[in-house]
Simulated scan of single mutants.
Amino acid sequence: MAIELYFPHDEIDARNPNFDLAADYLELTAFFSDQSRSFTKDLINATEIGADDDYDSVDKEMTDREEILSGAVRRIDGRCRALGTAYPFTLDANGDVLSYVGQDTSYGQAAYILSLVLSHLKAVSPILDGSLVYPTEAEIVELRKYFQYFATAALAAEVNGQAWSFGYPRLDKSNFHKKLTEIWGVFRDGILKTSIGAPDRPQDDQIDVFAARIHPDGLPGFLLAAGQVATGNNWRDKSLRGHLQNVFHSRWFGQQPVTPMICYHIIPFARPDDEFFDDCRVLGNVLHRLRVPYRVAEAQRLHAQGIAIEAFDQLTAAVAWVKAYASRGMAAA
């Protein structure tokens, strides 16, 4: 038995089916199932219920619905190949059964489930809306915090260096200027000085994560990344690229750093391959649901080596939430 989730006919059983959404539907069904599995053929059953009956022939109807199934299976297979052990599901050899295997939940797997849930809050998707397992408002606040911490770990692994969770509110309760001074005390590139007209009470000035791989000589010209973490439906409207190029350094530095910052956008969503090209064109480098969990798994090894990754100790709480959330689904089923 499984929790009853909403099946978005208008996006899946459509002229251009959203295969990522179909794959997500199967993953969420497996995650909340008391047997930790879903059947891919259920996509065909779901499309038949509530269908508009506007097909010219039965053959055309069956062909289109088989294409939905095969498209969703392709996306799931691609996720498995991209994420390896950080993907918390397995697909049987015939592509018939999707199983949730994250009961012992690694950090990477927790990052995936957290991203999956954030992708289906009601402002983004109707799949979880109205169900018995829809997160509370307080939980949603916590989930966004957890994703910020996962994003910090992921960007650390992306540059193979240390990282700071800079987004407001900060875990250490520091204000903007204190935190910026702390970080640039490590970088030692540029001299901080607030320019005339800059905001009096800045929170994070659009930057949620800094990550850097600093050379042993301590000199500038190192790998430095700045990331915007976006979990809302307007994520594509929050490009950081122009702000980094034209505003941030001139606003907060008297002597500007010579080390350029690489722009990152970090999101919990799965993206169609073709559209992803334009995402990167607009936003810079993008870490999404098929990248963040893999990098989080790598960050675990970095942290074990003594690399400083701020808020990494908070990931255990995120893992605990994912485990409890799965149990809630099983109890409600």
Rank of each mutant, 00 (worst) to 15 (best):
S106I: 09
Q148V: 00
Q256P: 01
H120F: 02
I267N: 10
I140K: 12
M261Y: 13
L28S: 07
Y25H: 12
D129R: 04
A14V: 03
A51S: 10
L118R: 08
F166D: 06
E48C: 05
R37K: 15
D13G: 05
T231W: 13
R213H: 15
R170G: 07
T63Y: 12
D77G: 13
N233R: 12
D42K: 05
W184C: 08
L128E: 07
P216N: 10
A311L: 00
P126V: 13
D273N: 12
Q305S: 11
S38M: 08
A163V: 09
I127A: 02
R328K: 15
L287D: 02
K193A: 15
G197L: 10
D208Y: 00
F147T: 03
H9A: 10
A270V: 14
P216R: 08
V282P: 00
R295N: 04
L180W: 02
E137M: 01
H177Y: 09
R37I: 05
Y294R: 14
S57I: 02
Q255D: 13
N16F: 03
T136S: 12
S165Q: 09
K238I: 08
T29V: 00
G130R: 13
T194G: 01
A299P: 13
S106E: 09
S99G: 01
K60R: 08
S131N: 06
L224G: 01
R144W: 01
V319I: 15
A320K: 12
G102S: 10
